[in-house]
Measured scan of single mutants.
Amino acid sequence: CHSECLGNCSQPDDPTKCVACRNFYLDGRCVETCPPPYYHFQDWRCVNFSFCQDLHHKCKNSRRQGCHQYVIHNNKCIPECPSGYTMNSSNLLCTPCLGPCPKVCHLLEGEKTIDSVTSAQELRGCTVINGSLIINIRGGNNLAAELEANLGLIEEISGYLKIRRSYALVSLSFFRKLRLIRGETLEIGNYSFYALDNQNLRQLWDWSKHNLTITQGKLFFHYNPKLCLSEIHKMEEVSGTKGRQERNDIALKTNGDQASCENELLKFSYIRTSFDKILLRWEPYWPPDFRDLLGFMLFYKEAPYQNVTEFDGQDACGSNSWTVVDIDPPLRSNDPKSQNHPGWLMRGLKPWTQYAIFVKTLVTFSDERRTYGAKSDIIYVQTDATNPSVPLDPISVSNSSSQIILKWKPPSDPNGNITHYLVFWERQAEDSELFELDYCLKGLKLPSRTWSPPFESEDSQKHNQSEYEDSAGECCSCPKTDSQILKELEESSFRKTFEDYLHNVVFVPRKT
């Protein structure tokens, strides 16, 4: 048989008469490798580009789960590009990614509803959504962080984005990388972005840091009482949809009607710091009717980097990364020049730590249904340095008659930039024990000054392991946590139920 035959053949030295091919099969003959313009397919066939392209389009058009959109890589027609490569849609070739590779997620039936953290986790790592997304989240724990972890990498949506009755959302900033909504599939009414009845939605994105392009379709905003109209108009300008909307697409009466839409800028007039305090004062603000001013709200939190936005980490279910302080308005003076500047002394802060701070007014709604208010920009203030805590785990070892090696770990709280350490030492008198000992005694162990690591005695271990207080009263049991108490109650309830079950099964009433 021919060298490319495997198993047997019907005619000697003829690659077209093989029972099976050793390498690849091409047009009725066995070959060692697939010549151009053919590609290896499933490690035994040679196919042309049209064959591989037909497989790709067949799966793409069917949208069946589990099928493969075949691509070409290293002269092979394979189910998908290997790690580190992405497909070129024009020629199906796998090309190296520039940075992290995109991950295209194809949605069944063309859309997916995100109504819980669990459903959001199914899209973790996706960068391109081939379909439409509907966000409908009523509640949950730590929602802002969970949504950002699972949806934060999405850069492109081919269909539309719909935010509907998501009472738990305060902001859409968890879509931190969303840059493009194509609108290839539109919501009824030709809408590519749809926001309806979101009672706590206050911000779409921080438009000073976020760009969003909507290729096709219109915007729809109705019944978002805490979303200011200025935020919607800003989205029109940034996304390129200005002029597409009709009169009733953006409701003037049901958007922002319960919001404090600040239209003035508060400026800080005085800032002073110490290692654990920050004193702030800002310019006074009074609405047209000074009785509408209820006070100020001061927001602050630790910020290692200057990239904080107002609604980071917030949701309507209680999660809030900001510390909020309510401040009463100052006494009002008739003389504008003698107006008191409101302020606040922030206490209990960490030394040498940068804080993000902003302040906003708290006002009631005027009778004319106009909203007044003022808010400052987010500023960054760093507390002063102070003395560091003591170095940890000092170790001293003498390696000769004239040297001592000293080692330690950095302090747990540096409280500033540590530039150097101060080492103090003092000579001590020799131990009298060394002169009084009889060095001729056998088995004498000389006193040693070398360091030995501390260890816990058996008594201390027994005390720590004991669940009861000892007789001397030195140790006591740790208080039980809520989960331990709940577990004990469940076990007790189970024992009672099981005992009742045994009584009912074992003891049967005697027939009379």
Rank of each mutant, 00 (worst) to 15 (best):
K301Q: 02
I379V: 11
C317V: 10
W282L: 03
V117T: 08
P288R: 14
N190Y: 09
K226T: 05
N150R: 04
L201F: 13
E262W: 00
A259T: 07
L151I: 11
Q306E: 12
K301Y: 03
F193D: 04
A144F: 15
I114E: 04
L169T: 14
T113D: 05
K177M: 10
Q245M: 09
L161W: 02
K103T: 04
L123V: 08
N263C: 08
K177N: 15
Q245P: 13
G110R: 09
S333Y: 05
I405W: 13
E156G: 02
L186E: 09
N399S: 11
G159C: 06
A251L: 12
L186P: 10
E146K: 10
L293Y: 01
G183Y: 05
V325W: 15
Y194S: 13
R138K: 01
L229G: 06
G140A: 13
Q203K: 11
H106Y: 10
G131R: 01
N320I: 04
P351G: 07
S274V: 06
E302R: 14
G152V: 03
Y300W: 07
I181F: 00
Q339S: 07
Y380G: 04
R369V: 08
P287W: 03
V324A: 10
S321V: 08
G243W: 06
S171V: 02
L345H: 06
S269P: 00
A168P: 09
L147W: 04
P288A: 11
N340A: 12
V381S: 07
G189T: 01
E283P: 02
S132N: 12
L123R: 03
E187G: 13
L362Y: 04
C228Q: 02
F220W: 05
I157Y: 01
N136K: 05
Q306S: 12
S173M: 11
N387T: 13
C105Q: 07
F358C: 00
I154G: 01
G217T: 01
G159K: 03
N198G: 15
E368Y: 06
T113W: 02
V104R: 04
V381L: 15
I327T: 06
T254G: 14
I129L: 14
H233R: 02
N334P: 08
P394D: 06
K350D: 09
S321N: 09
F268W: 11
L266W: 02
S116Y: 05
R332L: 03
H341V: 10
D315E: 15
Y380Q: 07
H106D: 15
Q199D: 10
G159P: 01
D206V: 10
S400W: 05
T241S: 06
K242P: 10
I163S: 03
E187P: 04
T127L: 15
T371M: 00
N320L: 12
P342V: 13
I188E: 02
V381Y: 14
R369S: 12
I327P: 03
S389T: 14
A259K: 09
Q199L: 06
V359I: 12
R176K: 13
T371I: 10
G240R: 09
L180T: 12
G110W: 07
V238C: 05
L293I: 02
S158E: 07
E246S: 09
R369T: 05
T386W: 09
Q403M: 09
T215W: 03
N136I: 00
M297T: 02
S319A: 06
D312R: 10
T118A: 09
L133H: 03
Y191P: 15
L298V: 08
W286F: 04
K162H: 09
D257P: 02
A303D: 07
L143Q: 07
Y372S: 05
A144T: 03
W352D: 14
L161Q: 03
I357N: 01
G159D: 01
K375T: 04
K103D: 02
A251Y: 15
I163Q: 02
G343V: 06
V128W: 15
F193G: 02
D312S: 12
F220K: 13
Q258Y: 13
A259Q: 04
T118N: 15
W286L: 06
C317Q: 11
P304S: 05
L169S: 12
S173F: 09
L280R: 00
R247G: 15
V117M: 11
S119F: 02
K218T: 11
C261L: 03
N142V: 09
R165M: 08
G217D: 06
M297S: 09
I134H: 00
L227W: 01
S132V: 01
M297I: 06
I129N: 00
P287N: 00
L280H: 03
K407M: 11
R244P: 11
N307I: 15
Q403V: 05
I379P: 02
N141W: 11
A120W: 04
Y194G: 14
Q258A: 04
K360Q: 00
T118E: 14
R244M: 07
L178E: 01
R291D: 01
Y223L: 03
K277M: 11
P284S: 05
H210Y: 15
P342R: 04
Y191W: 07
L406G: 00
Y270T: 07
L161C: 06
S338I: 09
C317M: 08
L392A: 15
M346L: 09
I114M: 04
I214S: 09
L294D: 06
V359P: 00
P304Q: 02
S401L: 11
S333T: 09
P284T: 03
S132D: 03
L143H: 05
H106V: 11
G131K: 01
E302I: 14
L219P: 11
N255S: 07
A145I: 12
R369Q: 10
V170E: 10
F174G: 03
L147S: 02
I214Q: 08
S338K: 13
S398M: 03
T113C: 15
T323D: 08
G313H: 14
L107Q: 10
D257G: 00
Y380R: 10
V325P: 00
Y160S: 09
P351M: 03
D335S: 14
V308S: 10
I114T: 01
N150Y: 06
D115T: 10
R138H: 04
E246F: 08
G159S: 04
K407T: 03
S319G: 12
L201K: 01
S119I: 09
S171K: 11
R369Y: 15
C228L: 03
I404L: 03
K267T: 11
P391E: 05
Q403Y: 15
L227T: 13
F358V: 03
F358R: 05
Y372Q: 03
G373N: 03
E187H: 10
